[in-house]
Design a protein around this nucleic acid. Structure first.
Lengths: 203, 203
DNA sequence: TTCAATACGGAACATCGTTCCGTTTTGCAA
DNA sequence: TTGCAAAACGGAACGATGTTCCGTATTGAA
């Protein structure tokens, strides 16, 4: 939990020089500040505000993230990772059915606070191009694991595709979040979850 | 088809002075230019670009539309109206089932080109507050008329709510528009339309 | 301790929404 | 037709924001 992010060194010939301590400090502060600011002001918050909150100059922001959208993408990528990792913890701490419920609740919480995520994803900015793939790589397997465990325990029906379910929940929430329609979205998700139980094969 | 827009004069005591000819010209040119620019560059296009295309100064834009979002809302309102009016024409020119199909296709075409519409609607800007209501007032009755005619002709099932169908199509398209997912959205809409036929009561 | 590489900070620049105001156009009436 | 006040126009100017640039400070290895 202590370390926040590390600059990767994926398979190069020689281990490129270590990241300088101040650079790593700035990067951590930036990601944390950005996450906090995005949550309260949405992803449209000014870069200067994030820089100030991180105690860093704007130049430093752009040194780490050449474009504003790169910072947004980095924050979301990290949140996706954290959400995916939560699945394993839940699987160990709860019976399969409850673990699944709790994780979905967590995922909804993740999506619901992402003002402007949908807009960002559909802006065409290439910085976001990798996000859907990242979601498929991390979140889909996480949910699939929970689904399979619950299915093996006879608590949910067996014909549910993790990706479909993830997409459905995402679509429902990304298009409404806090308007009157949010209630409808909540109901639709509840309906989906109820539906999971339908046709289960108790052992 | 000639006249483009008229300034309303709804029920005031005395007929407030007629709109000046140049003002009406500017307004028409603006709405047309904005529609064109939005279609090619999305609703985020600079105001200056729209003003230039319309052959007016930016000051004139803001005289007619105090905020950028007012212009966007006005353009969408007009497109909603045109789309709604198309329903009556289709109802007269085609048998009920085909009229319904064609109108849905037209509606999809309307939604699909609206880059940023979803984002705009959920931005919280008060200028957009009336758009959902306007859609309910114009589009929902239009679709309901087509649905009822098709239902009376025994071509579609009777338990479909116009508003639900409109929402469903809108959600499906607004979240994808031109990414790989657009194919999926198209399939989902086709599925919906096929589903309409299911349980029909041929007379 | 030295010093070259690296990272930092923030002024400066470009773009965009919006405001302001001097100038032009319009339509009514003399 | 001409005069004129109201209405509308155009575009320079302002403030905010994303992004770039470069002189200065920090870091870590020799």
């Amino acid at each position: 939990m202590g370390d926040i992010a590390q600059v990767g060194n994926s398979g190069g010939a020689k281990p490129d020089r270590r990241v300088r301590a101040d650079a790593q400090r700035s990067l951590d502060a930036l990601l944390q500040a950005a996450k906090s600011v995005f949550a309260t002001s949405g992803v449209d918050a000014p870069v200067r505000e994030i820089a100030e909150k991180a105690g860093v100059g704007v130049g430093t922001v752009y040194r780490h993230f050449p474009q504003r959208s790169d910072l947004i993408a980095a924050v979301f990528r990290r949140e996706i990772d954290v959400c995916a990792e939560a699945a394993a913890a839940l699987a160990e701490g709860y019976p399969p059915g409850e673990a699944l419920d709790r994780w979905i609740e967590r995922y909804v919480g993740f999506i619901a606070t992402k003002r402007g995520l949908a807009a960002a994803l559909h802006s065409g900015d290439t910085a976001y191009a990798g996000l859907p793939a990242h979601r498929d790589e991390r979140l889909v397997p996480a949910l699939r694991g929970l689904l399979e465990a619950a299915r093996d325990a006879g608590e949910v029906r067996p014909d549910i595709d993790a990706r479909d379910l993830l997409n459905a929940i995402g679509s429902l929430y990304m298009t409404v979040h806090d308007e009157p329609g949010a209630e409808g979205a909540r109901r639709m998700v509840a309906l989906l979850v109820d539906g999971l139980r339908h046709g289960a094969a108790p052992k």
